[in-house]
Design a protein around this nucleic acid. Sequence first.
DNA 1: GAATCCATACTCATTAAATGAATATGGGTG
DNA 2: CACCCATATTCATTTAATGAGTATGGATTC
Lengths: 181, 181
Amino acid sequence: MSPRRQDPLSTEYILLGLAAKGPVHGYDLHKQLGTLDGLSAIWRVKQSQVYALLDKLENMGYLHGEAVPGTAAVLRKQYHLNDAGQRAFDAWMNSPVQHPRQVRQEFLARLYFAQQSGVQVTRQLIDAQYAACQSWQKSIQDALEHNDEPQNFQRVVDAYRLSQINAILDWLDQCRTTLLP
Amino acid sequence: MSPRRQDPLSTEYILLGLAAKGPVHGYDLHKQLGTLDGLSAIWRVKQSQVYALLDKLENMGYLHGEAVPGTAAVLRKQYHLNDAGQRAFDAWMNSPVQHPRQVRQEFLARLYFAQQSGVQVTRQLIDAQYAACQSWQKSIQDALEHNDEPQNFQRVVDAYRLSQINAILDWLDQCRTTLLP
DNA sequence: GAATCCATACTCATTAAATGAATATGGGTG
DNA sequence: CACCCATATTCATTTAATGAGTATGGATTC
């Protein structure tokens, strides 16, 4: 996934989410993401990539940037989230990921921001994703029932996928008990 | 993962593996991968990408291509695996994937070719990957023991990862019983 | 029997993302 | 006073992915 992508992935939305808490600039974002911020557990980002993404998000009309004096000699380019950006971020937060492989980065990123917004948002996020997972589970179970050759490669793949989906469901349940009152 | 990659991913090795069974050419590879071949379960590939990858593999010295007459008017470019290519493929087959996220494509691809090579190769592959998974499991369990704040984001991430790893271990066990005598 | 369409087969220009490396400078330190 | 480091950003390069294009012989249709 790289060239010809064009639609923002979790990386872009993570920056929008951080910008939602106040104006940001590239240098500081990179430093935060590399040190304290828990997001480093799911996203390792190079400095030049942060700048490239901020630039892209400005061109997409989600961020507005202006040069302001920082603590260094060079002017700092400070971005703030505008209405379109806020709407895009909200829409992203409210859309469950569509594929198990997206849970690792895309769902965990949403969960990070949900936790910062309180338990109601967190509960909503977990419930919506849980429902999506159940739907995946059902599809795969159907596929497995219509395929009774145990050595068939497609069946082996489906068995793998089902095991991963079931694990996600268990983990989401576990999140409910540890993160929600 | 895209620009600045350079080291072959599973996609390249899949083509090497297919070329190991006899000479191949782009048009036919794409057709096979899109229809009957079980690999379509883990890799959807565009025609132009097949050609680009074959080209790259030739430049890397793993394939040797020559123009031969096919059934159409245009000459067909037929590739066959040379020694370096065979060695690279064998090395790939014998190296367990290093990260849970690689199981979905990279390990399943190896498993596909292992199944075609017989039960001994398959057993060897599964055993080696099982050991690697146990090592991941141990690392994460250690991390979880040194972190007792249940709401900590890093802990939530680790809990997710552990659940996925445990599911892989269970699935590998299941593969042992269904794929091995 | 002419026109049209499809399968075979590959090539190429375009686009986007990731990254390393470069740039500039003020302030602190030995 | 020389040197290094932190701040802060820019840019050219590399690579992958893809859509679209090219060419033509044989089959199909009317």
